[in-house]
């Protein structure tokens, strides 16, 4: 799995680097690599409340900058289900689950499409995946589909960051 991630990172890197001015990023060495360490973005499934109607996923992301930033929430869990956010595979059959939620045509993001985060603030959201994916009993594997997050400063400079989220496995009884 790691090697797949690594390749993806390598491919994504070059364009990202061009966008980012190093001097704007404070403190963290890891940010120079544009990949956030795992503690900045976490994702987990609540295994105690797992059923075909209730697959609760908690996602959290920390502002890695020592200043106020805003995050474009489009195509991220913070938007809720307005796009196909996850790649979910039934490990028993090898089939990928079809997203059943809304598909949105967008224009320009407006002020309400951003989440304001103060310096190093952590934001979390819980989503019930069974609202938009049809689960049956069995074993599943889950990944976040889009791993890059666009942080912006007030001056609208964009800092796309790659967030390495875990690859989750769970079982629905």
């Amino acid at each position: 799995m790691f090697s797949i991630h690594y390749l993806w990172i390598k491919k994504t890197f070059i364009p990202l680097v061009l966008f980012i001015s190093y001097s704007s990023i404070t403190s963290h060495k890891a940010l120079a690599n544009m990949e956030l360490p795992i503690q900045y973005c976490s994702m987990s499934i609540n295994s105690t409340l797992l059923s075909t109607d209730q697959v609760s996923l908690n996602f959290s992301l920390q502002n890695p900058y020592d200043k106020n930033m805003r995050l474009l929430i489009w195509y991220t869990p913070f938007e809720g289900f307005f796009s196909d956010l996850f790649i979910i595979t039934n490990s028993d059959t090898g089939e990928q689950l079809n997203y059943q939620g809304p598909m949105v045509k967008r224009l320009q993001p407006q002020i309400e499409d951003y989440l304001s985060l103060s310096a190093n603030e952590i934001s979390s959201i819980t989503l019930n995946l069974s609202l938009v994916y049809v689960f049956t009993q069995g074993n599943y594997q889950l990944q976040l589909k889009k791993n890059s997050f666009n942080f912006e400063e007030d001056n609208l400079t964009t800092f796309p960051l790659f967030c390495k989220t875990p690859f989750l496995e769970f079982n629905i009884k």
Binding site: F82, Q100, M103, V104, K105, R106, Q108, D113
Partner: peptide
Amino acid sequence: KKSYFAYVYPTQPYKVYLCRA
């Protein structure tokens, strides 16, 4: 009331939700 143009649920024809754009 969102900033989007519009959206649909692909499995639910033929209802189209129109938004601000």
